[in-house]
């Protein structure tokens, strides 16, 4: 907390307006705004800590996913997919969440609807493609969020 009140960066309602225009499929703003609402002030301490926490967790999870894929451990992949799906959903990272859900299904040897069975080989192939895609989506989200907070900090 600075010792002097920082001049208000913008009129009060603007920050959400700014947010909601771009990347609307990348981020579910309703969810993310809910986090921002919990912030105490313009520092975004709370939401930032959540997001950073998520980054950390996501990267660890990606590491585990790589390893599980190497080990051809579909069960583990499904679990990891579920796990990352949860935290992504909490932040509102729609794309990442959707892909993680797919991974969860593939890990259970079903197609992305979760209804039809697929072969183990099929599942592993799909997951390895998917994993790269999720990572890209995650990178996109990460960049966006980092920019978002950088902008806040600078203003």
């Amino acid at each position: 907390m600075p010792s002097t009140p920082s001049p208000p960066p913008s009129p009060p309602f603007d920050e959400e307006r700014e947010l909601s225009t771009p990347n609307s499929d990348l981020i579910d703003h309703e969810t993310f705004d809910q986090l921002l609402e919990m912030d105490d002030d313009d520092e975004h301490d709370f939401s930032k800590s959540i997001v950073l926490n998520y980054f950390e967790q996501a990267e660890t999870t990606f590491g585990s996913m790589d390893k599980a894929l190497e080990d051809r451990d579909l069960n583990e992949l499904s679990k990891l997919g579920h796990f990352l799906k949860g935290s992504s959903a909490a932040i509102g990272l729609t794309k990442v969440k959707a892909s993680c859900e797919k991974m969860q299904h593939f890990g259970n040897m079903t197609d992305e609807t979760g209804k039809n069975t697929i072969s183990e080989e099929d599942a592993l192939t799909k997951i390895s493609t998917l994993l790269e895609k999720v990572k890209d989506e995650y990178k996109e989200a990460e960049t966006y969020l980092k920019n978002f907070y950088a902008e806040r900090d600078n203003s």
Binding site: L35, S49, I50, N53, Y54, E56, Q57, G86, S87, A90
Partner: peptide, 9 residues
Amino acid sequence: DDDAVYQNI
């Protein structure tokens, strides 16, 4: 919850 994000939120 084992998910730190959920714990915090």
